[in-house]
Nucleic acid binder design. Structure first.
Lengths: 210, 210
DNA sequence: CGAAGTCGGCGAGTTCCGCTATCCATATCG
DNA sequence: CGATATGGATAGCGGAACTCGCCGACTTCG
């Protein structure tokens, strides 16, 4: 398969494919001449993966690069891979460096996670994010502790278990794509649920007009 | 309070405050002279809100503008406001226009939501997103229906109810910020839960080395 | 009164990101 | 043969979110 064909199959423009090749996000095809190369199904699959990660998962190409590197490192455990994906997704919400690094909030988050018994990397960027959320909530004037995350933790726990149980365990690449896709799907469903229950609570206002 | 003071109080640089003023994201202060103005606590609060939405909520300034406009429209129901926030958050994951608009997937999603009994705006951007997720999952070779979203829906439902029950109902602005912050928090917890349960499943590999 | 500093407002410039466009020397197809 | 396609390289584009620098009007302090 030549580049134009690859473009058609994947829905990615030739120019963009060239760009990905240059950036080493897509491995080169096997050269058949000085200026011709042959691509195959793995290239199609990889292109699709890249588009899922950037398009739906909102990952930057830098993060995508890391995920792909982890994926190509064939001696990496599913767990290690999950961590990489985790970090990549978290990297898209970069922790504000200007925050004063509230140690109290950090400690509370760490303790909360420890109480849950979760085995989470001590350097996981999510810890910082949670601490920042806590600080932001307090800045809003709501004096709350890390325990407000309890419903989140509970729901996340159920969801993770159910998904891990019900998902097929095929290739690592599809597992990565699925993780990201389900993350997006959940975020959407959460917003819909919010909308629904808010609507129910406000059933008095059938006409939402002003 | 003058601009430099506002900058100090809010942690936002003077240049950025000026930028926000120019972009009408921050209302002007009351002018005390031709080139002096007085700012107050509402400005501090608004700046903090903007930083929460852009920084933690990953909203573009365009989305922030819409949310702020809805917030300033004081004759808007909490439900209407939630919809605006919802749409703003969804707008950050723009639906790929290049997708062939799979009507079958769209129908399945609509039916799924109808079966749930959720009262969701028929034009909610989330519907399209879910359909695209479905298409993407199928492209990965996994022949699944909209029912794979059932665990998501279940978890989202519980979470929404619990949060709506337990949250204080103070100002609309803080409600918006809280919604966004809790969305971020949940995403993080979800990833952590995934990491944790994957670790448990792979307990044989204590040393994750290669 | 005057020097020094601050303020607001404005336009232009910067940086990063993710492509996109153009050129060119070769290859391939009909 | 000639039209079209390929790959490689370089340059440019367009949007987003600031950031800079200047000016002239003020305020403050001595």
């Amino acid at each position: 398969m030549k580049i134009s064909n690859l473009s058609r199959r994947s829905g990615v423009s030739v120019a963009t494919i060239k760009f990905y090749l240059r950036e080493h996000l897509l491995p080169p095809g096997v050269p058949t001449a000085r200026n011709q190369a042959e691509y195959d199904e793995t290239h199609v699959a990889r292109l699709r993966l890249i588009r899922v990660l950037t398009g739906m998962g909102m990952m930057s190409l830098a993060s995508v690069r890391e995920v792909l590197a982890a994926l190509d490192d064939n001696c990496m455990s599913p767990h290690g891979l999950a961590k990489v994906v985790n970090n990549a997704l978290s990297a898209e919400h970069p922790a504000r460096a200007d925050a004063p690094a509230d140690t109290s909030a950090n400690g509370q988050v760490d303790r909360f996670l420890a109480d849950l018994g979760w085995r989470v990397d001590p350097n996981a960027p999510g810890r910082t994010t949670l601490a920042q959320v806590l600080v932001a909530l307090r800045d809003l004037g709501w004096d709350c502790g890390a325990d407000i995350f309890a419903p989140c933790a509970d729901a996340a726990e159920r969801l993770a278990v159910r998904e891990l149980d019900s998902l097929p365990t095929d290739g690592a690449a599809t597992a990565v794509a699925r993780t990201v896709l389900l993350e997006v799907a959940f975020a959407v469903m959460r917003r819909m649920a919010y909308e629904h229950y808010l609507a129910i609570r406000a059933y008095g206002s059938a006409a939402p007009g002003c």
